[in-house]
């Protein structure tokens, strides 16, 4: 059972890093972007590019990666944020200016998602890639077997969520984001530049997705559909958590991660994505506002 919890937390770490950005984008831009999964894959491939340029993923402290990949992680976060900003300026901002319906925004994001995914295929093909082939021995923590890379993923995720929490509650920009997510008009009246908040939302959302992609690439593998496959679990976590704040999303991600680990262990691994969808369904029927969501 402890093993399942550990596996679930590892799965939850990738979902968390993706869904936190999805939740912020949803609350500030007012639509669920189907491209968030592919931001994850784009990030993983940017880091792969840096590692390829360096010629090695390096190695520090007995891990399967080192400074080249750590540098790649930063580059991936920055470049993915730049991609998201460029897409916003070229497409989503134009649609907002034209007062396009939410359906148009969802549809455009679905198109952007496919374009990103297949641009990766164009550049790197369908075959999976790895940052490094080194195999690190699993640690044994009181009977629970866990890879050092997996521990790092959980640690990075916890650090980033805590950092984001401090950012949202302690900084002016973070508070502005919370204000815009609740009431954009009132935020503007308060002197908040909504355009600036939107830009930072994409930067943080896509940047964290890129980190998720690199970690997922380190722990599992890199392939063009790696992010797309996380999209449904992320949406499930968003709905389970109530859609309105990142804390619900994080809790949702942990629940979905555990549900996936239980499915892999006791049911059928191939239906892992379906489990999160059924979770969504049950939540919608019993509690449409999610677990931490407010009553509509």
């Amino acid at each position: 059972m402890m093993q399942v919890i550990a596996d679930g937390l590892v799965a939850a770490s990738f979902i968390t890093l993706g869904v936190v950005g999805l939740s912020m984008i949803y609350n500030i831009l007012n639509f669920p972007t189907f491209a968030q999964g592919d931001h994850i894959a784009v990030g993983a491939y940017f880091a792969l590019g840096v590692v390829a340029l360096a010629g090695t993923a390096g190695s520090v402290a007995g891990l399967s990666f080192g400074w080249p990949l750590i540098l790649g992680l930063f580059c991936a976060a920055v470049l993915t944020a730049v991609v998201a900003l460029a897409l916003d300026r070229a497409i989503f901002a134009q649609l907002r200016r034209r007062d396009a319906s939410r359906i148009s925004l969802i549809m455009a994001s679905f198109g952007v998602a496919l374009m990103l995914r297949y641009m990766i295929v164009m550049a790197a093909g369908h075959d999976p890639h790895y940052y490094a082939f080194a195999i690190t021995p699993a640690l044994n923590l009181g009977g629970v077997r866990i890879q050092p890379n997996e521990l790092i993923s959980i640690a990075v995720t916890v650090a980033m969520v805590v950092g984001l929490h401090l950012f949202l509650t302690r900084t002016w920009l973070g508070r502005s984001m919370r204000a815009v997510s609740e009431n954009p008009t009132l935020a503007r009246v308060n002197g908040i530049d909504v355009g600036r908040v939107v830009r930072w939302t994409w930067i943080i959302g896509a940047g964290m997705a890129a980190v998720a992609g690199v970690l997922l690439g380190v722990v599992v593998q890199i392939h063009p559909f790696m992010g797309f496959e996380l999209l449904l679990p992320m949406f499930a976590a968003l709905i389970v958590g109530g859609m309105t704040n990142i804390y619900g999303a994080v809790l949702g991600a942990v629940l979905i991660g555990l549900a996936e680990a239980l499915t892999i262990r006791y049911l059928a691994p191939e239906y892992r994505q379906a489990v999160s969808f059924i979770a969504v369904f049950v939540v919608l029927m019993v509690r449409p506002q999610g677990i931490l969501g407010e009553k509509p």
Binding site: R178, A179, E182, N183, T185, L186, V189, T244, N245
Partner: peptide, 13 residues
Amino acid sequence: AYVPQTENVFTRL
């Protein structure tokens, strides 16, 4: 400064 008629406070804050 401007105080709107409705939704003039951040209810979650």
